[in-house]
Design a protein around this nucleic acid. Structure first.
Length: 329
DNA sequence: TTCCGACAGTGGGGTCGCAAT
DNA sequence: ATTGCGACCCCACTATCGGAA
């Protein structure tokens, strides 16, 4: 009998943080959302897009099979690569799509499957139950260890947990209505994401051509000063509406230059952006923009960058790479 | 009537596998 | 052996539309 795929319930992004006795709050983990499905001896891990990735994570499958208790359930959780208490999405990527046993061993990545919900258990559909009842059932169902970990939650105090998330380098906080049902595949307002957003100013050193129906420009090439040289920090291609695109285009045109202002070579910059065949244009590095992002990658690029506005009060030469600065409440 | 959720479209970094070079 | 590209993860965001509220 094939194991049944259940679409994970999705959360809505929120900019409003709050305390509320009718809600519970938990750590938002930076990994891969996976549903673990047991059907007798058959245990599988499914991605959001309905791919069976069991072969990539044999140690997790082993640990799930070793769980004592009923042999039929669906667990919802997040698979993370751990470095101490910190998650590393880049480490996890070294394991995605890899199924060769030796390659898996050589990657040297420590996985933890953090579980936080239980849509099905022992032949029963728990989706109609309130979240807290499902969480109680999940807590009591299994004995946890280093590979299968229970993601704990806190009642009412969302603000304090969010501030802790900012300090501890978490990706954010999940807020969930305590009485809510499990709604497979639905992006529900009963689950909210409080994401930690970092921000800093960056210098525009160029732009790429727009694709398809896009007008004005595709993305801005960004950098910061490291002594006298402008270091490339990646691109930003979202966060502007049509009007802003037009405005930025009119500002950049007159600044166009034949000289690459970055310390990195044009080939290096283009290699990083190999996904877009669009042409790149250089500009005099005189425009400063505010960028929101989630974190710096290992390669020194912005992850999840979005444009948040012009900073015409800033001297580009003063733009350096800062310690990650949380923005928002 | 307004608002919300779903979808499509555009853009980002990073990794692996695989085919072409 | 190297390179380019697609397919996945993680996304952010704008614009649009139809149905729910």
């Amino acid at each position: 009998m094939p194991s049944e795929w259940i679409a994970p319930m999705l959360a809505t992004l929120s900019s409003r943080r709050f305390d509320d006795p009718a809600w519970v709050f938990e750590r938002k983990l930076d990994g891969e959302r996976l549903m673990a499905v047991r059907d007798g001896a058959d245990v599988r891990l499914w991605t959001r897009n309905r791919l069976d990735v069991s072969a990539s994570y044999p140690e997790v499958i082993r640990a799930l099979k070793a769980l004592r208790g009923p042999k039929s359930w669906v667990i919802d959780g997040e698979l993370c690569a751990m470095r101490g208490d910190q998650t590393s999405f880049e480490d996890l990527q070294k394991r995605m799509h890899v199924t060769d046993r030796r390659a898996i061993a050589n990657a040297g990545v420590t996985l933890a499957y953090w579980v936080f919900d239980l849509p099905r258990f022992d032949g029963h559909d728990l989706c109609p139950l309130p979240l807290t009842a499902r969480k109680d059932a999940l807590r009591d169902a299994f004995a946890y260890d280093d590979t299968i970990r229970l993601s704990t939650h806190e009642a009412e105090r969302g603000l304090a947990l969010f501030h802790h998330a900012q300090d501890a380098g978490w990706e954010g906080v999940m807020a969930k209505r305590a009485a809510s049902t499990y709604q497979p595949g639905r992006r529900s307002p009963d689950w909210l994401k409080f994401k930690v957003v970092r921000g800093q100013e960056l210098v525009v050193g160029g732009w790429t051509d727009p694709q398809g129906s896009r007008s004005g420009l595709g993305a801005l090439l960004l950098g910061y000063y490291d002594g006298d040289v402008l270091r490339y920090a990646g691109k930003v291609g979202t966060g502007f509406d049509a009007r802003t695109l037009a405005h930025l285009g009119s500002l950049l045109g007159p600044l166009a230059s034949d000289t690459n202002p970055f310390a990195e070579s044009a080939a290096e910059i283009r290699k990083a952006s190999r996904s877009s065949p669009s042409q790149t244009h250089w500009v005099e590095p005189s425009l400063v923009v505010e960028i929101g992002f989630s974190e710096w990658t290992g390669a020194g690029r912005l992850r999840h960058p979005r444009y948040q506005g012009l900073r015409d009060d800033k001297d580009p030469r003063e733009v350096v790479r800062e310690e990650p600065r949380p923005i928002g409440p």
